Computed example of a mutant assay.
Amino acid sequence: MSDTDTSRLDGDAVAAEARAALAAFGIDPVSLELLGGLDSINFRVDAGERGCYVLGLHDLARHDPRAIALSLAWLDHLALDTDLVLPRPVRDLQGEHVSMVRFPPRRARPCTLVVWVEGEPPSGALQDRFLEEAGSVMARLHGSRFDPPPDFVRRRFDAVHASRCLSGIVSVYGDALDAQQSDALAHGTRAITALLDGLPRRASSFGMLHGDFHAGNYLIHGDAFRVIDFGRCGVGFHALDIAIALEVEAPQREAFLAGYARVRPLPPEFVEHEHLFTAMAHLDNLAFLATRPQERSFMLETLPRVAEAFARLPGPHGVRAP
Rank of each mutant, 00 (worst) to 15 (best):
P150Y: 11
L80M: 07
L84H: 03
W74S: 02
I228T: 11
A61F: 02
R226Q: 14
L55F: 09
V117N: 10
V90I: 14
H317L: 12
R140C: 03
L257M: 12
L57G: 03
A194G: 04
A184S: 15
P293C: 12
A24P: 05
Y173V: 05
L38F: 13
R226V: 03
A224T: 13
A159Q: 00
P314A: 13
V115T: 15
R262Y: 07
G318H: 04
H63P: 00
G11K: 05
F277I: 12
S144D: 11
R154L: 15
V54T: 13
H275V: 11
R88Q: 13
V306T: 13
P268M: 05
L34R: 11
A69L: 01
A139V: 03
V137N: 03
P150L: 11
I220S: 06
R292K: 14
N285T: 12
R264N: 08
A215S: 14
S205A: 13
G56Y: 09
G36V: 07
A24L: 06
V101F: 03
L60E: 08
P200H: 11
D183I: 00
D92M: 08
G211C: 05
T4F: 12
D147H: 07
R106I: 01
Y173W: 08
A224L: 12
W116V: 06
A15C: 12
V263H: 09
L72M: 10
E254T: 08
Q94P: 01
M299I: 07
A13T: 10
G135K: 08
V235S: 04
G315T: 01
D28V: 09
A255W: 04
F146G: 12
A134Q: 07
R109C: 09
S144E: 11
F225W: 05
R102H: 05
S144H: 06
V319Y: 00
F157K: 02
A215T: 14
A159R: 00
H97Y: 15
A16Y: 02
L209I: 02
L300W: 05
F152D: 02
G207W: 08
T82Y: 11
H275D: 14
H317C: 06
P148F: 06
R305E: 15
L185C: 07
A203S: 15
